[in-house]
Design a protein around this nucleic acid. Structure first.
Length: 648
RNA sequence: GCUGACGUAGCUCAAUUGGCAGAGCAGCUGAUUUGUAAUCAGCAGGUUAAGGGUUCGAGUCCCUUCGUCAGCUCCA
């Protein structure tokens, strides 16, 4: 057996080291500085503990605390410290899973009673003690029998253990008396863990299965630097301030009333204005791109959804059936529609189609209703009554790529060029359980890829993540404070054309089956408006702002002129109003700022004499610009037309 | 749907061990005529989510229902 191993470092240099040398030794050999910053190592690309002996030739890269992979290690280790502390305080607690997640970690426990906020404080305090003690994280590889022995009192761990394959290495990590079945890796010692905070506790089903017992999950966050932790906590606060439910109330955009029902939105005039502008923008764009608008009923005989296959598969998400009216045949039951595709399919099938007619693009910003679980409802982001910016494209296989290309362009226009979102694209390919031949899938996936590449876009691939009826493209958008939201979705469908026997006559005078593309660019109007509220923190760009201009006469003497200016702005299509309430100027300016009116046009004695207005731009206090009414009017109209994101 | 927490005026929040339901803002009325983030005074506003129970007495304790929130799950 060789006594040394050849370790290749990222700079290409090769170090000859004794077998079993840990990555830590390499870091120390390079520089004390590197050793200090080192958190873990990538050995042949796999993240390892610094202390884990390297037994064969390998590439080794030291992962330092500024590497994103290091944060996962730190957070995972913090989760172990959490479990260590909980076990010390509650020795009977059974442990579930405790992984690192985006921005933090959690750990699941099976305990006699749920954790209270006071419990969290006590646990966090104990965590600090554990961390400060500097327990080594010790990794051991054990046999299955030995592992069974060790986790005799941990039924949840035993269950996981039995699922591990025979060829898998079973590793166990311990720190300060706490032992966990765990793949690792971990930081070297608990004293590396300094900057963390427990955030909240909530119930979570074991293995995410609602038929299994409920565990108590504790969430937390951990960082290498105090400044990073502080910044993260500030981000959470900022997100809370932007919460669309709070802003929706403050800005009088929408409400949800108990008597109407949960998940059903009452759009107030100001919120409705935003929706109106959004729909107008989208529909104008669709017409330009040769879509046709359609309108279809909100209620239908349920046989339609049996034919489409939604029933009984999707029944849990549909509202219950309604009987037909008295005196009518009771043979048919009706359903409120949860989707539009079957109806659009019928519009397609309402007459013969030639290959020359394709693609047929049918669009409808449609209200649909889905009976979502009560516990999942959340403001505008998850609702039961929603308006999809839905469309279905019926095309030939050779047209798929061009259609997808156009859809991605549309997505970029809407999300990026219009609203300034950055976004990320994922392509989901064929799942194990699918319909259609492999040839069909080859064509479909190649078309999606081709369009993405023609666009010059980078995208991720979710292998096997497609729907059973076709591959899809999902777009995740990133908002002003870095959060990701589900944006557009584009799905190919070979199933519905089959079920509804859709056809077109080809150049060969033979019947052919079209392909169907389902797509939503905004997702749903409700969710998108919610996202916009948080993205802009309620300060909408001029074209979307429910109230664009507020004209404020300083005293009664300017009242008439103010109303005349308001009339002029209204005549140009601007949403203007006059605040001539009997209040001080300061009061009225403050009021306008609080509801985030983009422009306040103040009219005093000087302005009346000059035919001008003193324009105050939202958020820019004390820097008013005096300009003629004409100039202001042109400026505002131009910005609305351009859908400008900033005010000038 | 499940687990836990919560529900007081339009909004934000008080109310001691069970002991007279209160404040600020918003609203209304009046005075004031205002030069860029809150002028002053007065008035009005409540079946304490709904229903039931315990008690001399319930916003407060117990039960049921509805709703909200944090998650689980699922998705757009």
């Amino acid at each position: 057996m060789k006594a040394t191993v050849r370790l290749t470092l990222p700079d290409g240099s090769v170090k000859e080291m004794p077998v079993g040398t840990p990555a830590r030794a390499i870091a120390e050999a390079v520089s004390p500085r590197l050793a200090k910053a080192a958190v873990a190592a990538a050995v042949n690309g796999e993240v390892w503990d610094l202390n884990r002996p390297i037994l064969g030739d390998a590439t080794v890269e030291i992962i330092t605390d500024d590497d994103p992979r290091a944060l996962d290690v730190l957070r995972h280790s913090t989760a172990h410290v959490l479990a260590t502390a909980v076990r010390q305080l509650l020795p009977d607690a059974n442990i579930g899973f405790g992984p690192a997640i985006a921005d933090g970690f959690y750990y699941d426990f099976e305990v006699a009673r749920p954790f209270t906020p006071e419990d969290l404080e006590r646990i966090e305090e104990r965590m600090r003690e554990v961390a400060q003690r500097g327990h080594e994280f010790v990794r051991e590889e054990v046999s299955r029998d030995e592992a069974r022995e060790r986790f005799l009192d941990d039924p949840l761990k035993l269950e996981r253990l039995e699922e591990l394959g025979d060829d898998e290495v079973i590793s166990v990590y311990s720190d300060g008396g706490f032992v966990d079945l765990c793949r690792g890796p971990h930081v070297q010692s608990t004293d590396r863990i300094k900057h963390f905070k427990l955030l909240h506790a909530a119930g979570a089903y074991w293995r995410g299965d609602s038929s299994r017992q409920m565990l108590q999950r504790i969430y937390g966050t951990a960082w290498f630097k105090q400044a990073d932790l502080d910044a993260h906590l500030r981000r959470l606060e900022e997100a809370e301030k932007r919460d669309h439910r709070t802003l929706g109330k403050q800005l009088d955009l929408f409400s949800i009333h108990e008597d109407v029902g949960p998940g059903l939105i009452l759009w107030h005039p100001k919120g409705a204005t935003i929706q109106f502008e959004l729909k107008r923008f989208i529909e104008d764009e669709l017409l330009r791109r040769r879509y046709d608008l359609v309108y279809t009923p909100h209620v239908t005989r349920e046989q339609l959804f049996f034919r489409s296959g939604h029933l009984p598969l999707y029944e849990d998400h549909q509202f219950p059936a309604m009987a037909a009216g008295e005196g009518e045949s009771q043979e048919f039951h009706y359903r409120v529609k949860p989707m539009n595709c079957p109806m659009h399919t019928l519009v397609y099938a309402s007459r013969q189609r030639s290959y020359r007619d394709l693609p047929v693009r049918l669009a409808e910003v449609a209200n649909v209703y889905r009976n979502e679980l009560s516990g999942t409802l959340h403001g505008l982001l998850r609702v039961r009554g929603l308006s999809m910016d839905d469309a279905h494209i019926f095309c030939r296989e050779d047209q798929i790529e061009d259609e997808i290309f156009d859809l991605i362009d549309l997505t970029d226009l809407v999300l990026h060029r219009t609203f300034g979102f950055e976004y990320r694209i994922d392509l989901s390919t064929r799942p194990a359980k699918k319909i259609g031949s492999d040839d069909m899938w080859d064509v479909a996936e190649a078309a999606l890829r081709g369009a993405l590449e023609r666009m010059g876009l980078t995208y991720g691939i979710d292998e096997g993540g497609g729907a059973f009826y076709g591959p899809k493209i999902d777009v995740q958008l990133r908002d002003a404070i870095g959060r990701e939201w589900q944006g557009a979705t584009i799905q190919l469908d070979y199933q519905l054309p089959e079920r509804f026997e859709l056809e077109y006559t080809g150049a060969d005078n033979r019947p052919h089956r079209p392909v169907m593309i389902h797509r939503a660019i905004l997702g749903t109007v409700e969710r998108f408006v919610g996202c916009l509220i948080e993205h802009f923190a309620g300060a909408f760009p001029l074209w979307l702002a429910p109230e664009q201009v507020r004209v404020i006469p300083i005293s009664e003497d300017q009242k008439q002129v103010a109303h005349a200016i308001d009339e002029r702005l209204r005549a140009r299509g601007l949403r203007s109003s006059v605040d001539d309430r009997n209040e001080t100027l300061n009061y009225r300016v403050r009021d306008g700022e609080l509801v985030k009116v983009p422009y306040m046009a103040v009219v005093g004695r000087r302005e009346v004499e000059q035919g001008s207005v003193a324009v105050r731009v939202r958020g820019a206090s004390k820097k008013q610009a005096i300009m003629s009414v004409d100039e202001f009017e042109e400026r505002a109209v131009r910005q609305v037309r351009d859908r400008s994101l900033s005010l000038e």
